[in-house]
């Protein structure tokens, strides 16, 4: 039997996908955990960021800094479009609008009419050149055992984690400040905060923009070593992000980061174990059925979490809440 899947699963710790999900989940924590905004369209922010970055880089040939700026501007515009009509309304409406908006983005970019720009269903390849040009690492192979990385592969992993650490420090600093006190107050009862003279709608907008930018940059980290695929930003992505933040703790800074690592490592481990069992005919299922079963397990895990440990791994039980 081949047990290589075990070190490979732990290699998820360094995968750009894990890093990207950690950052996007941190953004969603700012929305949901701290401000109480029920954003079900974080995948939409991720898609917008990815497309603004990839189109400006690949199609327009913009330099890296300009493309990153475009990515941030894209997230801000998306937040404004979503927020202006909905942030005055009750929390439920935001969730309806965001889930729809994220799907609109995904279907729009797949439209054949604009596929010269967006790449249609194939997405966009090759937005990594500008980033790899900055790689200072010598061109040798890094890592050990089955985990081997090229110099470019290691470069994106290092920069990715640095971005996550910086974002985490930023969120931590904000949530310990009077600004954080107001957004947490809004999570509890926005009318009370309004009665104390705070412009609640504007704070919700700031929170939506901040978390949205994190989601947008997360996609840049994910697509640099791979490519931008529209179907990676469906509702499933948002639900993975919710699983991650509930796993780690929705009202903590460390929760979404560690949650992302655990989520991807465990998903990879179960896949490896299932493959092992299926190929050795120890389970009465086919390898086609094996894929969906992983996600059934994710669903069950999410339900068990919410029922038995709503505060997640790092959360303070008293601060756990699902009333948003």
């Amino acid at each position: 039997m081949d047990f290589n899947f075990i070190p490979l699963a732990f290699g998820q710790l360094l995968e750009p996908q894990t890093i990207g999900y950690a950052l996007a989940a941190l953004g969603l924590t700012v929305h949901f955990g701290f401000t109480g905004l029920l954003n079900f369209g974080q995948a939409g922010f991720m898609a917008v960021g990815g497309y603004f970055f990839a189109i400006t880089t690949v199609k327009f040939g913009w330099p890296l800094w300009a493309a990153l700026l475009a990515c941030i501007v894209g997230a801000v515009i998306f937040a404004l479009i979503l927020g202006i009509p909905t942030l005055r309304l009750r929390a439920d409406y935001l969730s309806i609008v965001t889930i729809a908006a994220a799907e609109i983005i995904r279907y729009t970019v797949k439209t054949p009419d604009i596929s010269p720009l967006t790449g249609g269903s194939d997405g966009i390849n090759g937005s990594s050149d500008g980033f790899y040009a900055l790689d200072p690492l010598p061109d040798i192979s890094y890592g050990f055992g089955v985990l081997r990385y090229t110099n470019d592969g290691l470069w994106i992993r290092i920069v990715g984690w640095l971005v996550v650490i910086l974002a985490a420090l930023l969120v931590r600093q904000l949530m310990r400040s009077p600004w954080g006190r107001i957004v947490k107050g809004i999570r509890e009862d926005e009318d009370a905060v309004r009665s104390l003279g705070k412009n609640v709608t504007w704070y919700k907008m700031q929170s939506l923009i901040l978390g949205g930018i994190m989601g947008a940059i997360a996609t840049v980290i994910v697509i640099i070593p791979t490519s931008l695929q529209p179907d990676n930003y469906g509702t499933q992505t948002t639900f993975f992000l919710y699983t991650i933040i509930l796993l780690g703790g929705a009202t903590t800074v460390l929760g979404p980061i560690v949650g992302s690592i655990i989520f991807w490592v465990v998903l990879q481990l179960t896949d490896g174990i299932l493959t092992l069992l299926v190929t050795n005919h120890l389970l009465p299922i086919t390898s086609i059925q094996q894929g969906p079963i992983r996600f059934i397990l994710v669903g069950i895990a999410l339900m068990l979490l919410v029922i038995f440990r709503p505060q997640g791994i790092f959360g303070n039980k008293r601060e756990a809440h699902f009333s948003a």
């Binding site: 999570r187 509890e188 009862d189 009318d191 009665s195 008293r318």
Partner: peptide, 9 residues
């Protein structure tokens, strides 16, 4: 009328 203490602060 219905007290709005911010419970989790």
């Amino acid at each position: 009328q219905l007290t709005k203490a911010l419970s989790l602060l």
